[in-house]
Nucleic acid binder design. Structure first.
Length: 657
RNA sequence: GGGGGCGUAGCUCAGUUGGAUAGAGCAUCAGCCUUCUAAGCUGAGGGUCACAGGUUCGAUUCCUGUCGCCCCUACCA
């Protein structure tokens, strides 16, 4: 609702600028620093002052007279040097909300792809992966909420070095056959992803001490790529089972996918070969005949470096990017270019798809395969915009991918390729100590310590979730000793997920999270449970109200303009209503900024305002019937908006807390 | 060396694209549970927005420089 008024006011002002001053300018409205200044502030007179060479105050006055009778606006005043402060007609505004006159969200044309999670399928997921998945999933929810059509992809690098290293570990270190590994998986009480976590670290350490054993990796990679033999069989077993484990972990957080594109199909279906031919034909890459990259196909650095400095000393350095190695194999970036081309429907090829699994909701996840399938699948790919949720350390590789598109003259798609980057999750030194990780004196002084899958250094996602549930359960059991255990468990799980998702979202994308157990396990202050608690309190008001045998009023009849006018003369009630009505605008702004954290912040602020209201006003005990209706409606409206924000954040409301 | 990011309260972080008196949470201290359950609420203290210039009506925000921290700069991803 707020957004509508904002847009209409801005449009009207732009019209006036054109007619009065013959200026075409974008007008933006802002929130006044203090609520006593009004509901909306227009600083446009300042911008115009320079162009028109007139005092801003004068311009503001002139514009204000033109807006005097704007529908929905109660009054305008000029403040400071030339702000136009707008006060809304509170009763009219509230009335429109009571009668649900908000414009419906319109679905936009075209499809967006959001690719996220993308965990190497060779070990258990850790907290860094959680940040990726929660960020990506929340962004998907934001976009869907605002009418965008989204396809969620989780790319599976099932033929890469990381899988190969675990396979090599099973085969060469553990001397285990595919059959033995499979029976390990089928056997009781073994967490295969945890077992691989350790094996991966062990194999990496072994490589370090025995340089000659690196030949295992090459042998394994070749076998996996060829797709035949015991090593390839092990590769399939490891990757498939770990993918299943990752999907399970992510589902605990309410994260689902539409399709799992796999690297094996990019290779087997000749996606790379097609892209390679294109790149060669358009001269985007060339065959290097000298220097350190001799024998490789490389992309010149001029293609992806915006500034091409090359100082005197470094002139000899070759910072071109190798796309095809001298042994003829393609790098990840090469495969990623092919994949990116497919996402936009530019490759002229498609995968085959097979059902991977179905979520309890009935939503299906599909996986790519290299063979035609009898059962038809939905169509995937062919998007107009692509968001790749990938950590910022890979920005260089992402630049190369986009440069690849550009070199092929797909400029529109290059512009529509977004690296949705975020900083890593590291560990606070305190948490390292708690986990028994030994730190050097240097590391202890650092603000954070980087996690390393290769070293097995990190916090596993499921361990963290379990720990959160355990912590929440202690509180729930204490507060609700009479409730059935299964129900308490369900509540604790919702609280744990709320805490975790909020924790991963409260930081903006480019801030490094120094993960700290104490902070992550906190359920007080700016946390998910705080928001959930506000929603539970709102729900409790209705629960108690109905329990006492009262019936809900018909708001449209009870809340006449006069009742609304009297009610919202109260500043705190009006401020709460106004804030709640900004939910859609907050989500839209968060999309524009690419910051899921903004939605989290909004949810927290609204919860905070509601908690204030909850403390200050008695809803059920209000003796005056029409005022009680007003308070009930306000509670309902705020609750709806908090729940809407929570849904976008992937946070549920427990039945009690 | 080159590219990118960051520096805001004791700690962890926001800051709506250049606007009005810079905000939260945690921690500390002082209060509030017979109430729609306190995972909550109220209040207090805490700031040279790293530093120095510049741009202009106005700078935490933009530009330049300095200092400090981080990431990237593989025929790994």
């Amino acid at each position: 609702m707020f957004q509508q008024i904002e847009e209409r006011l801005a449009a009207e002002l732009e019209r006036q600028l054109a007619s009065r001053f013959d200026l075409r300018a974008k007008v933006s409205l802002e929130q006044p620093k203090q609520s006593s200044f009004g509901d909306l502030a227009i600083p446009v007179a300042f911008q115009l002052a320079r162009q028109l060479k007139r005092p801003p105050k004068q311009i503001a006055e002139e514009l204000a007279t033109g807006l005097a009778s704007f529908p929905g606006v109660a009054s305008l005043e000029i403040a400071g040097n030339g702000y136009i402060n707008v006060r809304l007609d509170r009763a009219a505004y509230a009335s429109a909300l009571v009668r649900n006159e908000d414009e419906p969200v319109r679905e936009t044309a075209g499809k967006f792809i959001v690719e996220h999670t993308n965990i190497n399928p060779n070990k258990a997921a850790h907290i860094g992966h959680l940040r990726n998945a929660v960020l990506g999933d929340t962004f998907v929810r934001m976009l869907r909420k605002r009418g965008r059509r989204i396809e969620t992809q989780n790319y599976i690098d099932n033929t890469g070095v990381q899988v190969a290293d675990v396979v090599a570990g099973f085969h060469f270190l553990e001397k285990q056959s595919p059959r033995e590994v499979q029976s390990l998986i089928d056997g009781p009480s073994i967490r295969f992803d945890y077992l691989c976590w350790d094996l991966y670290a062990r194999t990496s350490a072994y490589y370090k001490d025995h340089a000659d054993s690196l030949a295992w990796r090459d042998a394994t990679l070749h076998a996996i790529e060829a797709g035949a033999g015991e090593l390839a069989e092990l590769g399939r077993i490891v990757a498939d089972n770990i993918v299943q484990a990752h999907l399970k972990t992510m589902y605990r957080l309410g994260i689902e996918y539409d399709v799992l594109p796999r690297e094996s199909e990019i290779l087997h279906l000749q996606f790379w070969a097609t892209a390679f031919a294109l790149l060669k034909e358009r001269k985007a890459i060339y065959f290097e005949t000298e220097g350190k990259n001799k024998g490789c196909w490389v992309m010149p650095s001029s293609a992806f470096r915006t500034s091409a400095p090359q100082s005197e000393e470094s002139a000899g350095d070759d910072d071109s990017k190798v796309i095809v190695r001298s042994n003829g194999t393609v790098t990840y970036v090469g495969k990623d270019i092919a994949y990116q081309l497919w996402k936009f429907g530019l490759l002229g090829k498609d995968f085959f798809y097979r059902l991977w699994s179905t979520y309890p909701s009935g939503h299906a996840v599909w996986v790519t395969t290299d063979q035609p399938q009898p059962i038809p699948s939905p169509s995937f790919g062919g998007a107009s915009k692509v968001f790749n949720v990938i950590d910022s350390r890979q920005s260089y590789l992402q630049e190369v991918v986009v440069a690849g598109l550009r070199a092929l003259d797909f400029n529109e798609q290059a512009d529509a390729s977004v690296h949705f980057s975020y900083e890593m999750v590291a560990l606070s030194p305190r948490t390292c100590v708690e986990m028994g990780i030994e730190l050097s004196e240097e590391d202890k002084r650092r603000p954070y310590v980087e996690v390393s899958g290769r070293k097995g250094l990190g916090v596993k996602a499921d361990d963290l979730i379990d720990k959160l549930i355990e912590t929440a359960l202690v509180e729930v059991e204490e507060r609700h000793p009479e409730a059935p255990p299964a129900e308490r468990r369900a509540v604790a799980e919702q609280i744990a997920v709320g805490a975790l998702r909020y924790f991963m979202l409260k930081f903006t994308r480019n801030s490094v999270i120094a993960f700290d157990f104490h902070e992550a396990l906190s359920f007080e202050g700016e946390t998910g449970p705080y928001v959930q608690y506000a929603a539970v309190r709102a729900a409790n008001i209705f629960k108690k109200y109905l329990e006492r045998g009262q019936t809900m009023p018909r708001f449209e009849e009870a809340l006449t303009i006069d009742v609304l006018k009297a009610g919202f003369e109260s500043e705190p009630l009006w401020q709460l209503l106004l804030l709640a009505s900004k939910a859609d605008g907050a989500i839209e702004r968060a999309i524009a900024a690419g910051e899921p954290a903004h939605v989290a912040k909004f949810a927290f602020q609204l919860a905070q305002s509601f908690n204030n209201f909850y403390h200050e006003y008695s809803v059920i005990a209000e003796p005056n019937a029409s005022r009680r209706s007003l308070l009930l409606w306000l509670t309902q409206f705020v609750r709806e908006q908090i729940l809407a924000a929570m849904q976008v954040l992937g946070i549920q409301q427990p039945i009690y807390m």
